[in-house]
Design a protein around this nucleic acid. Structure first.
Lengths: 186, 186
DNA sequence: CCTTTATGATACAGCGTATATCATAAGCTA
DNA sequence: TAGCTTATGATATACGCTGTATCATAAAGG
């Protein structure tokens, strides 16, 4: 493994931090690279030595977030509810980063990758006990989309209710209703 | 009511059509006003006599779509399932337009306005029979977000299942699970 | 300590945006 | 239809942002 130059890490960290800050303060679209490099306190031309354009930096941050999240969750794919609570706890580690991904509408890219780990198993596990006449495509899309929707809601600072409770709610509002004989719980 | 000049209507219609076409063919972000005015077959400068920028045109199309959709469903706010099927039938009238709004991620703006009509009544109607410990904010968000998610899925041409069936599925997968004593149906 | 390399500063070409101007054509009104 | 009004087309232009090239300098690594 090649050690990366400290200066490279420093520059990229400054860029990522400035990017997240500016995204939350202003708007992604109208944020210029001049704004960004000034906030990051690096030379304008230096940006292009690391990323080809603004979107490329965003994708780098996205991919890094995906790796972090997946490696903390992929061992739990057989325990959906524990996987969910673990996911929520992980999100709390760097809230600004994930709020930025909500604002730029890239959080779904991230969560689709994460959810695919769990939902593939979920679909396989429940395929034979799906409610009658529910198209499997629709079921899969509903699980992933509805969970993402609640996570986006939960990322708002005033909505950060207990991760364990969120896991229960997701199970009761989204997972169980797909089953033929839903277990009744509070 | 002031009659608008035919030329104005003609220009704006050409711009909207070209905009929808190019959005579906290429990408919204990298679509230039030169591309747009060339496709619409109008002079470049003429664009700015109608809209201040690209986003302004998109918003105009969005607002027009919202008006059309709302006026076709707002009388049905007391019949959620009929409102849903009517909504789906309306979407079938101009599929390209709404697919474009999905691609530009503006469909949620539209559907939030439409769903607010129905969900306000839904919330009021079911507030007293909500499952225990479900935060009302979360419930409202879940209803709107999950419905929008299924509509986006349904707008994909290969997923256009029967509007009536969609209304039933939405009721059984999203609405009923929020209630304390969910009615069991197929 | 010496070599390597990432950075900062600057200049510059290219492109898209947005505005101003003027002649022309199309629409409206009587 | 005639005459006035107005939207359009074409063109020129200023401006800002992007992306690249160059060179001297500072910082890192061995």
């Amino acid at each position: 493994m090649p050690k990366t130059d400290r200066r490279i890490n420093r520059t990229r960290r400054q860029l990522a931090d400035a990017f997240i800050q500016l995204c939350l303060e202003r708007d992604y679209e109208q944020m210029t690279l001049r704004d960004l490099t000034e906030r990051a306190d690096i030379g304008y031309a230096t940006f292009f030595r690391h990323y080809s354009d603004k979107e490329s930096l965003l994708n780098a941050i996205l991919e890094e977030s995906i790796s972090t999240l997946i490696s903390s969750v992929n061992a739990l794919s057989d325990q959906p509810e524990l996987m969910m609570t673990t996911l929520f706890k992980q999100l709390l580690e760097q809230p600004e980063r994930y709020q930025m991904l909500v604002k730029t509408r890239h959080i779904s890219h991230l969560l689709e990758r994460v959810m695919t780990i769990g939902s593939a198993m979920f679909i396989e596990q429940f395929a034979h006990q799906l409610k009658a006449n529910i198209p499997p495509d629709l079921a899969a899309r509903h699980v992933i989309g509805a969970v993402i929707n609640l996570i986006e809601w939960w990322l708002e600072p005033s909505n950060r209710i207990d991760p364990k409770r969120m896991g229960e709610l997701i199970n009761s509002l989204i997972m169980q209703p797909l089953k033929d004989n839903p277990a009744l719980e509070s």
